[in-house]
Design a protein around this nucleic acid. Structure first.
Lengths: 126, 126
DNA sequence: CGGGATCCGAGCAGATACTG
DNA sequence: CAGTATCTGCTCGGATCCCG
């Protein structure tokens, strides 16, 4: 199954997998997907929770993720209007992997920061 | 949200985990790490294998990954000089997750592409 | 072979203002 | 509340040339 589907080489340029990987290789997208894992969240709630993201970038990123079928957008005719973002089943299959990446970052950041310091203070010819 | 191990909140700005995640959220970095999984590779070999990457970006990305302690750089005094890039033990712990992400992209790209097409051809008020 | 240095253009991000 | 619109940097990436 796995071998059959692999009609494309990941390292090849212009392969569809690259397009998907490229979309996923986005700090904000990863954070948003991770944040939605626990359930639907409204726009300004996301904006508040994900510190440092601008309203424009949040809007753009949400639109891309919706286009990719990873999350869905639900509008409720309240006053004022309410919009909820929810992971689709497809998106939910991804969050496991995203969470794994986040956990790796969390558990290994000390090692990474130590490596950076060692690298920066190294007197060798760089 | 999460629980015990989380001394930092991933969604907080300026948290170290964010810095690491940000580094990982790089298409080229992911491809390079994935490519090095099977063993040491030389500079121009990487350049050839990872289609579409420029020499400058390859060089920059390798330097960042080395600084993060994810890969090591070995110079051999041949003529001309040979440079090999190898995953460090730390880097090797990451490739499992990176590979999982690549596999997800590969197995689900059809669904993603279908979702994109549906989104683009939708007549609804967007 | 394995890069560094430089120049340049496109795109992305920030800030601000406005709207249904 | 949940965005859109616009303007303005400013960084990133590509291309080119050069070197030990």
């Amino acid at each position: 199954m796995m071998t059959m589907l692999q009609a494309y080489n990941v390292y090849e340029d212009r392969c569809p997998t690259r397009l998907v990987l490229d979309r996923l290789a986005d700090k904000w997208a990863l954070l948003i997907l991770d944040r939605l894992e626990s359930g639907p969240v409204r726009f300004n709630h996301l904006r508040r929770d994900i510190k440092g993201i601008s309203q424009k970038v949040l809007s753009q990123t949400l639109k891309k993720l919706e286009r990719d079928g990873l999350l869905s957008r639900a509008v409720f005719a309240t006053v004022p209007v309410t919009v909820e973002y929810t992971l689709t089943p497809l998106g939910r299959t991804l969050t496991q992997t995203v969470a794994a990446l986040a956990h790796w970052a969390e558990h290994n950041m000390d090692a990474v920061l130590a490596a950076q310091e060692a690298y920066d203070t190294a007197p060798s010819a760089r």
